[in-house]
Amino acid sequence: MRLTFQPLACIACDLCEVACSLRRDGVVTPMSSSIILHSEDKANYFGLVLKSRSEGVVLVRPEGVVSGQESSGGSGGPGAKPILLREPCDLCDGDPMCVRACPVRCISVED
């Protein structure tokens, strides 16, 4: 089972990140999620960064999805906790909250 993405469906609402923090710590925080929103807002360039157990860091960029990255390319800036220091996605024991939270079906599950 793995998460799959349609990058251009993303609307940068950040609900996946918040849902992940709710699952991990029961709070809303940008510090603990395994998935984070990366945005260059002035250029309207945005996507997601996922720390996955099976595929390493997955970059969900507008021009395509790349997995197995060693660096995130989107840590959320040095002021935030870098993706490599976070816990990897555990797929919420089979019912990922980011998938449920996403309002535009950018994120889905594949067996």
Binding site: L22, G26, T29
Partner: peptide, 23 residues
């Protein structure tokens, strides 16, 4: 402003479920 703290909820899972129903 940059927010890196956390906000506590009384019942996180219930809030999540009800928000999805409303949405």
């Amino acid at each position: 402003v940059r927010g890196m703290g956390e906000i506590e909820l009384e019942e996180p899972e219930e809030h999540f479920s009800r928000s999805l129903e409303l949405r």
